[in-house]
Write a protein that binds this DNA or RNA. Structure first.
Length: 208
DNA sequence: GCAATTCGGGAGACTCCGGC
DNA sequence: GCCGGAGTCTCCCGAATTGC
């Protein structure tokens, strides 16, 4: 079993290594202190079984780094480890495809539980923070999505799968410029400023 | 029925930005 | 500096809708 521990704090990497070691005896731990080192770890041909990822790391750029990893490694579970205990951040991380969210304040036993759950194919939600509140979809987001045309939804769907404009153009059999025009309309209607934010909104609604 | 208007889809030209 | 990707502006075309 190969686990990538990505955190800029050496002490916390050490703690996470202990957590992984406690959960899986034969685990091989790789470490990264920034997004470049994550890239170097991914360049290795050996597949990863789990990634423990700090959101606030050099080169991560918020959720963009998580989305990029999600696109590059769609089958590898990613657990976000963060000092943030903001419900919005947790929900957004899960919406971006994280298999779990571990607050750094969690006791070691809880972290082991999270790693075990995720490796069993389940999603770990820190219910002590989220409480029992069920995720409600903002009706405003629903409305924004509803304003998209059929073609724009298709573009957004392919965008959410990590496709570039060029790939979307190829799949829809249109030119690159047409895709970009749709993209501009999507950004305007969803009231966002980048394709990454558009994907986040789409995933928050859970349609893509 | 027909002209005007609106809207969505498609494309060309252009700028901006980041990576090499 | 060059190149590729992303985003914006503008225009054209066709279909649907509206008003006369």
């Amino acid at each position: 079993m190969r686990v990538l521990i990505a955190d800029d704090h050496p002490l916390f990497r050490d703690a996470l290594r202990h957590v992984v070691g406690q959960s899986f005896d034969a685990a091989e731990c790789l470490e990264a202190c920034d997004f470049n080192q994550i890239g170097a770890a991914l360049a290795d041909d050996e597949p990863l079984d789990l990634i423990l990822l700090d959101l606030n790391m050099p080169g991560m750029d918020g959720f963009t780094g998580l989305l990029r990893l999600r696109e590059d490694l769609p089958d590898t579970p990613i657990i976000v480890v963060s000092a943030s205990e903001d419900v919005e951040v947790i929900e957004q991380a899960l919406a971006c495809g994280a298999a779990g969210f571990i607050p750094k304040s969690s006791p070691k036993e809880r972290m082991c539980e999270a790693v075990g759950l995720v490796m069993n194919g389940e999603i770990f939600r820190p219910e002590e923070i989220l409480g029992t509140k069920t995720r409600t979809i903002d009706p405003l987001l629903e409305e924004k999505l509803g304003s998209l045309t059929h073609r724009q939804r298709m573009v957004l769907q392919l965008l959410a799968r990590g496709k570039s404009n060029k790939q979307i153009a190829y799949e829809l059999d249109v030119t690159n410029t047409t895709v970009k025009a749709h993209m501009t309309a999507i950004l305007r209607k969803l009231k966002v400023t980048s394709r990454t934010q558009a994907v986040i909104v789409a995933r928050q609604i859970g349609r893509f």
